[in-house]
Nucleic acid binder design. Structure first.
Lengths: 339, 339
DNA sequence: TTGTAGGCGTTATCAC
DNA sequence: GTGATAACGCCTACAA
């Protein structure tokens, strides 16, 4: 047989056949010493190992994957990758997955038209998939689940029989509201968009309920993109209104930071005139003045947990579905009131 | 032939054979309509398409990859994934690579022992690799290059014949120093560690040279980890020394933020008593008080550029090596002096 | 302990 | 146009 054409840009790889040839054994034997899957005499073993190192042989992952019918890789689909929130999830996910010996494929659906296609493509190259909220609609999700591909839902409402990992919202909203009410705040507004994703929706309704628990008026809903600049523009308006709220509960830190910027520009004092809180505890929350009171989420742990849950599914270690809800923590700084 | 055992956790995939069977054609024909690689009569074409959709057939990426000897994926190796710097590179990289139709595998070497092994593993599953500074030593890098795998170096000194993309350091250091000198600063310190990576090393020497150009004493070198907390601790000492510098040029924003924290704790006024500058322009730089003067790097573009350079190599669009140096920009805020 | 040979799911080259 | 059939590189019963 002639030497085959090398793949684009790569010299032809040395195959198991060449190793077998050189060592004077069959490919089966080479495979055995490679995998340690069966007894091989010390003598031949050494010959094979020699041949391997002399030829600088590395088994083709392609051939191996095809034979084993598995990728030893798993993927995660993000709505986007911008900002500290997702980046920490990436960090936690990569770390955990890598420790479990699986490669990590990432995909962001942000700004892409053919979400279905790219997700299916990704699905075809992994042994399991983590799906963030806001990436794949329920139909496609179900389709993927039914295809038998292990799936873990991240930060989104559970589907029966499917693993899900998310962070706690209801209780933390209550703690946050209690704290603000303790500061004497009465006229609340919720800044964000409950429609855009599951987390903001939960936060919105939880804040509303918590206020009801205090027999206070429901919060005004101020729709706003999850974007610092959009929040700044919105807040420039909101903060100059006659019926200005005295507490702005923002759906995430990005929004809260934009609000703080606007307040500074307008000379509106925080927290004296208005309290501002966020969600996430991004790095800037600690440095902004006044320091941003916010609900910290365990982002890294969230990613790690998803990776492990997925691995358990893939390996079959666990067959009953889980629905993990990670606890959050109120981080009190100065933007919520004098202490 | 009997039905094969399904892979772990997945139901058996439908293969091209089943489609061929159902359509009453050969697998070659199925492949043809799938790839559009040759003429097929409208009639059979339709039969095949029908069979495909009825069976919900999706070609196996494994089989295809083996036959084509390519992964249609490329990887990027980070020293770590913590913080805003790397996360924006990830963002730019994923975006560009995805647009080019390639899947993205990421790997962080941080805290892992067998770097060589995991990098080689990654190398075996991609058509090309981007290597960040501080991940893979020169020997292994050369080894990878010689294996024929397309490689792009990121933020690290070039190797002859190998693509490299990085950000500009020398000129931006000069601009920064000029600006500080213009503010009347004379006693400089450089905070960071030139030994840890290429960028800090370049910045250190460039700052030194720029000062020499002003006939000023070389900066004191204050070694410090690239970590906010380490910087804070270090700065608590540095800022209380008798011979306190009047300008602290920090190797990145994390360090600068830690320094600002320490200054605030100690009641040392910035910029009145000491100027502080960073590098990167992370989000917090804008929110900290005083606002952090820093050198902005085009992180997203850096990732994108690397992805494109790699793609050109893989596809063979370009064969001559490039060494791109992306321009930076001085962002003047309040931490460098009164304006 | 070792070798033979079939299978993993495609692509692509031949003939017809 | 279409169909056999040989790769692609590896794994793994089954035999020997």
């Amino acid at each position: 047989m002639m030497e085959s054409t090398p793949a684009i840009g790569r010299r032809p790889g040395v195959t198991i056949y060449q190793v077998a040839n050189r060592a004077g054994v069959s490919i089966a034997t080479v495979s055995r010493v490679l995998r340690g899957t069966a007894r091989v005499s010390p003598d031949t073993q050494q010959r094979v190992l020699d041949a391997i190192s002399e030829l600088r042989y590395t088994p083709s992952r392609l051939g191996r994957a095809l034979a084993e019918r598995r990728h030893a890789a798993n993927g995660i689909v993000f709505p986007e990758l911008f900002g500290p929130y997702y980046s920490e999830v990436v960090l936690g996910y990569e770390n955990a997955a890598s420790d479990l010996g699986r490669s990590v494929l990432i995909l962001s659906t942000h700004g892409r038209a053919a979400v279905r296609d790219i997700v299916l493509d990704l699905a075809s190259r992994v042994d399991g998939l983590v799906l963030f909220d806001g990436t794949v609609d329920d139909d496609l999700t179900r389709e993927l689940v039914e295809s038998g591909l292990p799936i873990v839902l991240l930060g989104r409402p559970g589907i029966a029989g499917v693993d899900a990992v998310s962070t706690e919202n209801v209780q933390s909203a209550r703690v946050l509201v209690d704290h603000l009410v303790g500061h004497g705040r009465r006229r609340f507004a919720f800044v964000g968009d409950p429609q855009v994703a599951s987390d903001p929706a939960e936060r919105w309704s939880a804040v509303s309920e918590a206020l009801a628990g205090h027999r206070l008026a429901p919060p005004a809903l101020v729709r706003c993109e999850f974007d610092e600049e959009a929040a700044r523009v919105m807040a420039r308006d909101l903060l100059t209104r006659d019926d200005r709220p005295d507490a702005l509960v923002c759906a995430n830190d990005q929004i809260a930071l934009g609000v703080l910027l606007a307040a500074e520009e307008l000379g509106v004092r925080v927290p004296a005139e208005v309290a501002v809180t966020g969600w996430d505890d991004v790095m800037a929350a600690k440095y902004v003045r006044p320091g941003l009171t916010t609900v910290r989420q365990p982002m890294i742990e969230l990613g790690a947990r998803a990776a492990r849950a997925l691995d358990e599914r893939i390996t079959g270690t666990r067959s009953i579905p889980i629905h993990d809800v990670l606890p959050t923590e109120l981080v009190v700084r100065d933007s919520c009131g004098e202490h």
